[in-house]
Design a protein around this nucleic acid. Sequence first.
DNA 1: TATACACTGAACTATATGGTTCAGTATGGA
DNA 2: TCCATACTGAACCATATAGTTCAGTGTATA
Lengths: 118, 118
Amino acid sequence: MVQYGSSPLDLSFAALSDATRRGIIDQLGRGDESITSLADKFQMTLTGMKKHVQVLERAGLVVTQKVGRVRTCRLGKRGLKAEAAWIEAHRKLFEARFEALDDIISEMKQEGSDDSAS
Amino acid sequence: MVQYGSSPLDLSFAALSDATRRGIIDQLGRGDESITSLADKFQMTLTGMKKHVQVLERAGLVVTQKVGRVRTCRLGKRGLKAEAAWIEAHRKLFEARFEALDDIISEMKQEGSDDSAS
DNA sequence: TATACACTGAACTATATGGTTCAGTATGGA
DNA sequence: TCCATACTGAACCATATAGTTCAGTGTATA
C-alpha cells in the first residue's frame, strides 16, 4: 500500500492553480504592492484580494507586513524551490517512460478498443 | 488593470495539489496500472480512484485506455513541460527580487511594525 | 477633531473536491 | 450458461474556494 500524507506542496500547488494568484505573483515580481493596489489591478473587492493573498501566504509564496494602515505584499523568500524540484524530478520520470515505451504505446494504439470512453 | 483568464495550468496545478494524485503519478512512473490496482495501492474505493484519475486525465497528465474490462492508466505524453516552464520563469523572478532587494528587506524588518498580523 | 482611507471579519452564495455507498453494465473464464 | 471481476454512474455528505456585501477598527491628515 502506498501512503501519502498532506504536504506543503499541497498548499503551494493549490495556490498556483488559480490564474489570479499566478497573476499576483507576476505582479509582485515587478515590485511590492498593497492589498488595495492589487485589488484595483485585478478588479476585485479588497476582501476578495485579501483572501487570495492569504492563500499565497499560507503557501509561503508571499510575505506581508503591515505598516500603518497599509499591508504590503512581496514575494516570499522560500520561493518555488520545492515545487521546481518536484516538477523536474517527475518531468524526467515522464520522459523516461516515453523513451522506454514509445513504440509499445503506438502499438497499443493500433489494437486499441474503446479508448477515451467516459 | 490586469486580466487573467483560466488556463490549462489551472487544471494541472490543481491536479498536482493533492498528495494522492502526486502519488499516482509516482506510481505510473514505475509502470502502467489499472484503476483497480491503483485503488488497492492507495486504499481507496474504485469510484474514488476513478475520480482522481479523471482529474489527472482532464489535466492531460495521465492517459487511459480501456481494453476489455480493464482501464489502463499511463503517464500522458504532454508531460509537465508547461508547468516546468512556468515554475522556472517565476523562480527566476523570485530570485531576481531578492538579489535586488535583500538588504532593503532586512532594513524593513528592523523598522517593521505589526508584521504577520492576521 | 472630523473625515477619509486601508484594512479586517463575519456572514452569505454558488460551486468544486474528496470521499463514500449502492446499483448497475459489460467482459472473461469455468 | 453462470459467476466473478472491472468498471461506471448517480446520489449523497462534509468541507473548501472564490467571490460578494456590510459593518466594523485603526491610522493619517486637513
